[in-house]
């Protein structure tokens, strides 16, 4: 079946669900094809990967857009040591590259198990790059005595 046959059939049969599905797929395809050319789409994608979309609803909408092994994503995870004189020091524990969503280095189960099971205070720097666009975010991660972890973004690099 060719696209013109498909569209003709959709019209003839009044198949609104197929038309909707087709429309959503088409919109996503246009969005994806525009990615290399549009700074706005690049920034929206970077913010999506860093959980920094303008609204949660906007992020939810973008979550159906395929993004396997997208962008260049790096992370630096450090232990944060608070000292008596209100200064702090950090000791880099691990750095590397992730395939997508660098925030997984904070939220995923293996990050929680590998890092935050042992660390009470950590600092995580995440960076994503797509062509000329770069987004870097810094996160403070703390674990309390009940093993509840809290993650808070505290600035951009």
């Amino acid at each position: 079946m060719r696209i013109n046959q498909f569209l003709r059939n959709v019209v003839q049969t009044g198949d609104l669900s197929a038309a909707t599905l087709f429309g959503v797929i088409l919109a996503i395809a246009v969005w994806l094809v525009s990615l290399p050319f549009s700074e706005k789409i690049q920034q929206a994608t970077l913010m999506r990967f860093h959980l920094q979309s303008p609204s949660f609803l906007a992020w939810c909408g973008l979550q159906v857009v395929p993004a396997m092994y997208n962008l260049e994503n790096r992370y630096w995870l450090s232990e944060r040591v608070e000292q008596d004189d209100a200064t702090r020091s950090v000791r880099c524990i691990e750095s590397g590259t992730t395939n997508h969503f660098p925030t997984r280095m904070i939220t995923s189960f293996d990050a929680r198990y590998r890092f935050f099971r042992q660390l009470d205070h950590a600092e995580v720097i995440l960076e994503s790059r797509y062509r000329d666009q770069v987004l870097a975010t810094r996160w403070q991660v703390d674990k309390d005595s009940n093993n509840v972890i809290s993650a808070r973004r505290f600035g951009e690099n």
Partner: peptide, 11 residues
């Protein structure tokens, strides 16, 4: 397409 477009970057 999603996989391909997100990889069109120097890295």
């Amino acid at each position: 397409l999603g996989g391909a477009m997100g990889k069109l970057t120097p890295g």
